[in-house]
Simulated scan of single mutants.
Amino acid sequence: MTAAFSEEEVHRPNVIQLVGVTKSYRNLNVLKPVDLDIKDGEFLTILGPSGSGKTTILRMIGGFTPPTSGRILLRGADISQVPIFRRPFNTVFQDYALFPHMTVAKNVAYGLRIRRRPAAEIKTKVSAVLDTVNLTDKAERYPSELSGGQRQRVALARAIVCEPQVILLDEPLAALDAELRRSMQEFLKDLQRRIRTTFVFITHDQEEAISMSDRIAVMDHGNLVQVGTPQEIYYKPRSEFVAKFFGENNLLPAQLDTDGVTGIVQSPLGRHPIPALASSSADLLLAIRPESFAIHDGNELRGDQRVSQARLENVTFLGATTQLSLAMGGPEHKIKVRVPTDQSGKHLNLGDDVLLRWSEADVSFLPRG
C-alpha cells in the first residue's frame, strides 16, 4: 500500500481544480456538481463502478467533452473552453491507439513532429524516453510485433515525450492479463515517480487503486463521495457505498443515543463513545475490516483494545491467511475475520465460542443507506 503523503507533499500546489463541474445529456444528469483538487506531481486515481462518472471527469479534464456547468482550472486559469490541442495534457487510452504502420520510434515521435520540433531534438527525446520505458531495443519494431505490455509502454512513451503537465490514463491496463497487469502497475507507478508528472488514472479495480495511488477519488452514480489516501479510504470510509465497494468490510447495525455531551453507540460489539451527533436516535452502521480482528490470546489488553464473543460457523483456508465466519450477538449478525493461518486457532471446532480482540480505533460509524 502506498505510504501517506509527507508534510511536503500535503502542501503541494494544485495543478488542476474542478469547481462545481457537472455534465448532462438532455434530461440525464451523468455528473453531479464535483469539486476536486489535483496536486502537482501526484498519482490520483478516480475509482468507481461502470457508469459512476469517472471517465466523464477524465474526458472533461482532457477537453474531449465540455462541462455543462462549472469550471476546470489549470494552475488557477480557467481552461473549460480551451480546445484539446491547446491543453498541456496527453491521454493514454485503453486500446493504446498506436499507428500500426509506424515503428515504435515513429509512434513515439509523432507528437513532436506535428509540433514541428527540429529533427535533432526529436531524435534525442525519442531515444531518451525509449530508454526510460525500457524499449530502446524495440525502436524499429511495429506494434504488431510487440506484446501487450510493450504496446502499453509505447503508448506511455508517446504520452510523456512531449513533457505534458498532466498525463490522463483511461483504464490503460484493463486489457492485460492478471500477471502482466500487476507488472505494469509497478512499472507505471515507478515511471510516475521518476518523471515527476501528475498522473490522473481511471479504474474500477480497487486493488489497482490501492497499490498505485497517492490519493483516490471515489465516484458513485455521478457523485464524488470521498477523496483521500488509500489508507484513509480503506480504514475510514465515510459512506456505506465506500465501505462495501472498497474492499471487504463487516457492517453491523448500530444505534446512537446521546446524553447531551457525549454520544454512546450500541452495536453487537458493545458500547462505543463518540462525539455527540445531531440526532438522538440515529440509525448507523458500524464498519470494521476482517483483518482488524484477532483471536484473543488471554494476554492483558492494551490501549483501546476490546474483546467480543462470537460463534464460529465456518473456516476457509486462503493460504497465508484463514477466514473465519462467525455469528455475533445473535445469528443475524454475521462477521468475517481474517487472521494469519498460523494464528487461526486450528484447535477450534465449528460451533465453538471464540473471543476476538479488536481496537476502537479500527471502527468507523456510517450513516445507514
Rank of each mutant, 00 (worst) to 15 (best):
A178R: 14
T56Q: 09
S52L: 08
R113C: 08
R113I: 13
G48T: 08
P367V: 10
G228Q: 06
S69P: 01
L256W: 05
V19D: 14
S281T: 13
I202C: 01
D297F: 07
P88R: 06
Q231L: 12
F365Y: 14
V104K: 04
T55L: 12
D352H: 10
H101Q: 13
I264V: 12
I72A: 04
A128F: 04
M212D: 08
V354F: 09
E7W: 00
Q343I: 03
R117D: 09
Q343P: 06
A120H: 14
A243T: 00
Q165E: 15
T203D: 05
G345E: 03
E240Q: 15
K336W: 03
L350W: 11
T197P: 00
R59H: 11
S69H: 12
L188S: 08
Q343V: 03
F246G: 00
L74M: 09
I335P: 10
S364H: 06
A120K: 15
N249F: 07
V126R: 12
K106W: 06
T203R: 01
T321R: 14
T2F: 00
Q255R: 15
S267D: 03
F365N: 08
H101D: 05
F99S: 11
G345R: 00
V363A: 01
L188E: 11
D35W: 09
P49G: 05
L252F: 02
D205C: 12
G329H: 06
R289M: 11
G345I: 00
Y235R: 14
L348D: 01
R311V: 11
E186N: 14
L112I: 01
G330R: 07
D297H: 04
L348F: 15
P237G: 00
M212R: 04
V133W: 06
A276W: 05
E232M: 10
E207I: 12
R357D: 09
L277S: 09
K336P: 04
D259G: 10
V92M: 05
S344H: 11
L44K: 00
V339P: 02
A77Y: 07
R181L: 03
L355H: 12
V126N: 13
N134Q: 15
T203P: 07
L156V: 11
L130Y: 10
E291Y: 11
P230L: 04
H333I: 02
V363I: 15
F317A: 12
I233R: 00
